[in-house]
Amino acid sequence: MTAIVQNKLPPEMCGETHLPGMAPALAHDWLRVDDAYEQQMRRRIELLDHKRADVLWMDPAALGAAQEVLDAALAILPAMGFSVAGDYVICPDGRRVAINPDHPLLTMGYLVQEDICLMQKRGDAHVLVGAVLCFPASWRLAEKAGKPLIGIHAPVPEYDAQLAKRVQRLFDGVRDGQPLWRYNRLWYDDPELHQPRSATAPRRISPDQSAAPFIRSERQCVVRMPQTDAVVFSIHTFVVHA
C-alpha cells in the first residue's frame, strides 16, 4: 500500500486543543472532502472488501439510527462534489456507490473519508452501538463495541472519572444542527492510516514524540441526529510530515 501523506494540516488544526475544549461547527461541516480523498478511499475500500469484520460493526438495534446518519450524509454530499441520484451516488473520484439502506454504515464507509462512530444513550451513558472504523489510531473496534464512553477510552490515563463526566455532559448537550469539533495530534513512525492496536498491547511512545517523522491528526466532530437522538462521532484523519 502506498503511503498517504498530505502536504499540510488545515489552518484551523495548527494549534493545540483537547477535550472537552471543543468549538462549534457549521451544521454540514462534519463531513469533508480534501485532496487525499481518492487515495484514502482506495485504502478504505481495500479494508472494507478484505477486512470487513475488523472495521465494521453494528448492534442490530441501532439500524434506525444508522439509517438516519446515512440520510443526513446524503443530504449534504451534493454540496461536496457528489451526485446523489435515486439509489446510487457518484463520488468525486468517479466511483458509483449503491445506497444500501439495510447496511447504512457500510454505505457510508464507501462514500466518505470519515470514520463514523454511532453512539446512543443507554442508561446514564452513551454507548458505542455501531461504527465503520477503517483508520483507528491504535485501538481496535472489536474491543470497544458496545461499551460506554469511559470504557471506550480505557486505558487512557488522562481519561479519569472527572473528565468522563465532562465528556458525557458534552454528548448530552450537543444540539441538532449545532455540531461541535476538536482535533488531536499524535506522532507516528509509520504513515499507515490503518493502525489497530489492542488495549493489552498499547503503543510505546518515545519521550521525545516530536522526533517521529509523521504527525497524525484527527478532526473529530460530535453531531446530534434529530429523530433517533443518536450522536455521531466522525473522525477525519490527516497524516503529514512532522
Rank of each mutant, 00 (worst) to 15 (best):
L56V: 11
D29H: 04
S210F: 15
P20Q: 10
A25D: 03
A65F: 14
G130N: 14
A36E: 07
E158A: 15
E46D: 05
P24F: 13
P136R: 10
D71K: 13
R122A: 06
E12F: 11
R44H: 06
D124A: 13
E218P: 00
E68P: 07
D35E: 10
V223T: 01
Y110F: 14
I152T: 01
L77M: 04
N184Y: 15
G94Y: 10
P155S: 11
R95H: 06
D35F: 12
L111C: 11
A72M: 13
H126S: 11
Y110V: 01
G86H: 07
L26H: 07
D115C: 15
A85E: 05
C221S: 05
D49I: 09
V223F: 07
V127G: 03
L170F: 10
L128M: 10
V112P: 00
I90S: 09
I4L: 04
Q178A: 01
F82D: 00
N184Q: 12
T17G: 04
Q120P: 02
H153W: 02
P196C: 13
D190V: 12
M1W: 13
F238M: 08
A53T: 10
L74H: 15
I205L: 08
P101A: 15
A242G: 09
L26I: 11
L31M: 07
Q162D: 14
M225C: 04
L19V: 05
A75P: 01
P60Q: 14
P191A: 14
G173V: 06
Y88P: 06
Q178L: 06
D115A: 10
A242Q: 11
D49R: 11
P20A: 09
P78S: 12
R216F: 03
Q39C: 09
H241G: 04
E158V: 07
P20W: 13
E192N: 12
P157Y: 12
T107G: 03
A125F: 08
A211P: 10
I99W: 05
L111F: 13
Q178F: 09
Q39Y: 04
